[in-house]
Structures are given as structure tokens and as C-alpha cells.
Write a protein that binds this DNA or RNA. Structure first.
Lengths: 314, 314
DNA sequence: TTTTTTAGGTAATCAAATTTTATGGAGACA
DNA sequence: TGTCTCCATAAAATTTGATTACCTAAAAAA
């Protein structure tokens, strides 16, 4: 670990003298007194064991060693300036990367709009969206690989304490039927009607599936009695299956806006039953929060948050 | 004139932490205490308005801004190391350029040998030889374009005081005759014999010519009575002329060693007359002396200096 | 020339920045 | 739970660097 034989200040002074051709002018340029400049150059010469300037005549002239050093000096100072600029850009959100985590659902239907809004405001910050399971997303937030995430499921207990979890919005999981289904005409279904349906569901490992199962169970339904026609691992696939009349499903309303508008899918209401889950924003309070992350949380998320979310009140 | 928001020491610390993964280890590596490291990083973070390390867990981890800064940090420190190495090379004569001045004669017959010796010892120092008139060489030494020079003539008066002039060697200007010349058989010529000769001389502007003229005049000869067959501006040309029997000439002995050995030219002795001039080393004491120049003067020149030269006594 | 001006070096004093010593708190690990 | 490690903090000490004042030498002007 070699000691550094010079400081950036000394290099700055060296350059100033070389530019101005005089110790005094360099001193003026740098807003210090001339002795300060003299001493620093003397230190530099002593430490490097070279003579840098010929002080004989009218002008301070560089020696061979001085010219050599000056070359490096300029390169070094340029790199320093560049570094400053890069950091400034990062601070003013003219650079950097924001890494966002999301579940399948939010990642597919919600995030694209939010990210679009963010990029519109800060086009020079690149955004990376990582769609993973709730569990994996949680760990990524915990160890800093993801700046912030929105999840719909339940975090593992140990993470709950580690991370900051803010209720963000309520996501209704609507019962959807093929438009031509016989039950589609009824104003309101009864819970018992569910037993008559064939379901197309997400596979049993998915967070959304677990949430739905739990909610139905909590409301008194015996989920073993529900008939599952098939399990698919993509919401889009399920939507297609429902539209094709293959069965019913509980799907996030955000994912079926277009289909509802087009009438290709029917959303049913069930008496005494609302299947809803809380979407939550998770961040890691014990970690550095990037400016981009801050801005995203403060300015972008609230525009999509439900009215009762704490995010609205910031 | 932007202030620099960081110091090289801070960058060095940053790098050490990044490498070691811990403030403490970095402190050990740099031979300082741990608080010193902490404070410097805090200063750095304050000045750049960024967070560089996540200090939460077991290891100190870089944030995005920290990684960005580290990149520049490494480049900057590398440049610094390179600069140091270049300066060291210069100091240890593993680089740099030595500029030597010389007159026609010394430049042609003496310098090549000296430079050869120097380059043998310091092959990485490049040497530049500039052959000019005494006057011009003197000025070049005065204004630093030439590090040191050997001259045979008289410096302009104003330069004599400005420069350091050290007697270096005595250069005999021998009277040479064609080997077949009738006078070549005489053991010793008389001054009067010179009037019988046809001379081939350097042109009258040349320093050597002036020196010869002056010496002959001082010894009582009437130089107007000497017959000048032709004036040439190159010693080699004169040598060829003499060898071809076109006339006699006064030539520096160093320039005819080969021809004397081969017997193609005859060196005559004149009673009561020695045509000699002092070769002098000139340097500029008011200017920076490069290491290469120092070494050349101390180690190379003495090997060629006459016994009574002050250079021998160093 | 002689005087004036300007650039740069030196020395003593002083202020500021860094380091160290000493100490405390938080998380990791047994 | 206790211990250990790592980092942060505070006060004191040291070092560094800057300023003021003064001096010298060389160039420019009178």
C-alpha cells in the first residue's frame, strides 16, 4: 500500500501554474496567496524528488519532469471532473438504475404504467423490473438487490420485521365467468353457486392462488368441494380459458379491465363475499435509499395508490 | 475553478474498503485507525451528497453511487501510480531525454563514442545530439534547449558570465599533409615551411578556422601569406582533399585517427608551434539540471577528459 | 544608470483538518 | 445470553496548510 506522493490540490496548483505561467497568477486563480502555491509546489518537488519548474526567468517554465507530471496531472484531474459529473447526474436523477420488484400480477398490469410515468419524468434513469414470487422478491429487497417492490402475498415472518411494509392498494380478485355461462345472467350469486362452477386456477404454488384459497376458506367455503378444471401458470392463459368457456376463475380486476370493457368476460358478484387482497409496498429501511427510489415512492406510487393508503398522505 | 469535492486519500480509503469489505480491515491496510477511515468516508459522502456504503450487515457493501464512484476511483488511482512510476523512471534514468550540444568536430568524432557509452549504461534514456556553431550552442544552453554542450571556440562575452564553462580537454589541431608530399619526410618543419604549402581550410566563418587563424597569428605567422587552395565546409571533405594531394590543412587530431593509423595522411610536427585549443564543457547553472545530464557530466565525460580537466577531480 | 515594479522565496503565526484515544451501541455467532 | 466484531461518536492532540509580513532578485521604466 504505497503512500501517495502528491495530493489533488498539488496537481491542481501545478496545472494552474502551467496554464498561467506564473505562481502568482495561479494563486489568484485559485483564490489563495502566492506563498501557499510556492509551498505546495516545493512539497511536491520534495516528495517526488524532482524539479518541476525553472523559476529563473520571467515565466515559470516546466522542466522535463514537470512536463511529464503535467501530462498525468491533466488526465487525473479530468477523471476527477468526470467522476463529479457522474455523481451529480446520479443525484439529479440523470442517470442510475432503479430496480423494482413485483409479483406476476402487478408486474404485468400495474408496473408498466407506473414505470412509463416515471420514465417520462426521468428518462435518464433506467428502470429494471424483476417479476418474482413474493418470497424471492422479499429476500431481494432485504439484501438490496431490489430497491422497492409491490407484493400481494404474505411475506415470510422473519422478513416482515426486517422490511418496511406499507399498505398500498386493494386488489379485488373478481370471480369471472365466460360471458355465455348460464350463471352470468344472475345479478348476484350465492356462495353455494361456486360449487357448481368449474374452475381454471393458477397453480397451487402461486401467491395469488394461496390468497384466494385462504380468503374463500375464511369465508366458510369448503375449497375441497370446488371443482378445478385445470391449473395454469399464467393469468393470460387463464383469461383465454375463461373466455373460451372452459370455466370460471378468480382474477385480479386490474388484469381484466380490457376484457370486461369488451364484454368477452363476465364479472360476477357474490353475496356476502368479497375476495380482496392488500397490495403492499415493501422497502428495506436499513439500507441506503437511492434518489430514484425515493422519487418513485413519493411521486409515482401515490398516483396509483388507493385513497386510504399511507402513501397518499405523504 | 471548481473546488474538488474529494481527495486522493479519500479515494484510497474508498478503494481499500471496497477491496477488504470492511472499514476496520481497510484501516489496518492503510496503517491508520478505524475512526479515521469512518470519518473520511463520512466526509466524502457529505461532500458528494451520496451514500457510498451500506453499513448494515456483516460487510460494508457499496451502494449504486458507491460502485459508480469506485470505478472512477480505480482509474484515478491507476493514473496516479503510473505517474509515480514515470517520475521514478526519470529519476532512476529509465526514461527521459538528454539533449547534448556540440560543435562539428566534437559532434562528429567525440560525441558518438560518449553517447554510445552513456546509452550502454542507460539504454532507456534517449539522447539527442545537436551540432551547431559555438554561438548558437551557447544560446541554446542558456535558454535551456540544450542540457550541456562541449564547444571548442570562444563564447560571446555575455554568455561567458551566464554559463558555467569547465575546461574539458585539449584538442590538438595537427598540420596534416598528403602522405606523398615532399615535406612529409621531414622530421620537423619550420614555421617558414608553412608558406610553401597550399592549404585546404574550413570556411572562414567556422569556429575552428578562427581558432587556427588566431593561434597561427599569435605565434608570429603572417596568415595572409599562407596560400589557401580552397575552402570547404566539412572536415571529411578536407580530409579527402588532403589525402588526394590537393594540399595541407590543420585538422583536429581526433578527426584523423583512422587516417593516421592507415598512413593515408601524414601528421607533421612544427618547431616551436603547437596549435591547440581548449574544449570546454558548458552548462547553465541557473537552470534545472536533469538527472541524466548530471550523470553524463559526472560519469561519462571524465572518461574522455584530459588529465588536467577539473572534471577528472570530481 | 538608478528606481520601480513584479515574481517568488522564507519565517512566524494561526486556523483548520485529520488522527488518535477512548467509549458506546448494534448485529453476528456460539 | 454473553461475547465478539464492527462501526459511529466525542474530545484531545497532532499535523497540515494558509496567511501575514518581509526579503531577494530580476525585469521594466524613468
Amino acid at each position: 500500500m504505497p503512500e501517495l506522493p502528491f495530493t489533488l490540490d498539488q496537481l491542481r496548483i501545478l496545472k494552474a501554474i502551467a496554464v498561467e505561467g506564473s505562481f502568482k497568477k495561479a494563486a489568484d486563480l485559485l483564490y489563495v496567496t502566492q506563498p501557499a502555491v510556492s509551498l505546495q509546489i516545493q512539497n511536491l518537488e520534495k516528495q517526488l524528488e524532482i524539479t518541476i519548474f525553472d523559476r529563473g526567468g520571467r515565466k515559470a517554465l516546466l522542466t522535463e519532469a514537470g512536463r511529464l507530471l503535467l501530462e498525468y496531472c491533466e488526465r487525473i484531474l479530468n477523471q476527477c471532473d468526470e467522476a463529479c459529473k457522474a455523481i451529480e447526474d446520479l443525484n439529479s436523477l440523470k442517470g442510475g438504475t432503479l430496480v423494482i420488484g413485483a409479483s406476476q400480477t402487478t408486474g404485468t398490469y400495474l408496473m408498466p404504467r407506473m414505470i412509463g410515468l416515471f420514465r417520462q419524468k426521468y428518462p435518464e434513469v433506467s428502470v429494471q423490473l424483476q417479476v418474482h414470487s413474493t418470497r424471492r422478491t422479499g429476500w431481494s429487497v432485504a439484501n438490496g438487490q431490489i430497491d422497492l417492490a409491490i407484493i400481494g402475498g404474505q411475506l415470510p415472518g422473519d422478513l416482515e420485521n426486517l422490511l418496511q411494509v406499507i399498505p398500498y392498494a386493494t386488489d379485488e380478485l373478481a370471480l369471472v365467468l365466460p360471458s355465455k355461462h348460464s350463471l352470468s345472467n344472475k345479478k348476484e350469486l350465492l356462495k353455494e353457486d361456486l360449487y357448481k362452477l368449474n374452475f381454471v386456477t393458477l397453480d397451487s404454488q402461486s401467491t395469488t392462488r394461496k390468497v384466494v384459497d385462504k380468503l374463500l376458506q375464511d369465508s366458510g367455503l369448503e375449497i375441497q368441494r370446488l371443482k378445478i378444471e385445470m391449473e395454469l401458470n399464467s393469468l393470460e392463459a387463464i383469461k383465454n380459458a375463461v373466455q373460451s368457456g372452459l370455466g370460471a376463475s378468480f382474477l385480479p380486476v386490474v388484469s381484466i379491465e380490457r376484457e370486461l370493457a369488451a364484454g368477452t368476460i363476465h364479472k360476477a358478484f357474490i353475496a356476502d363475499l368479497e375476495v380482496k387482497r392488500e397490495l403492499k409496498l415493501i422497502t428495506n429501511p436499513s439500507r441506503y435509499t437511492s434518489r430514484a427510489s425515493e422519487v418513485f415512492k413519493k411521486n409515482i406510487l401515490p398516483q396509483f395508490a388507493s385513497l386510504d393508503s399511507p402513501l397518499r398522505k405523504i
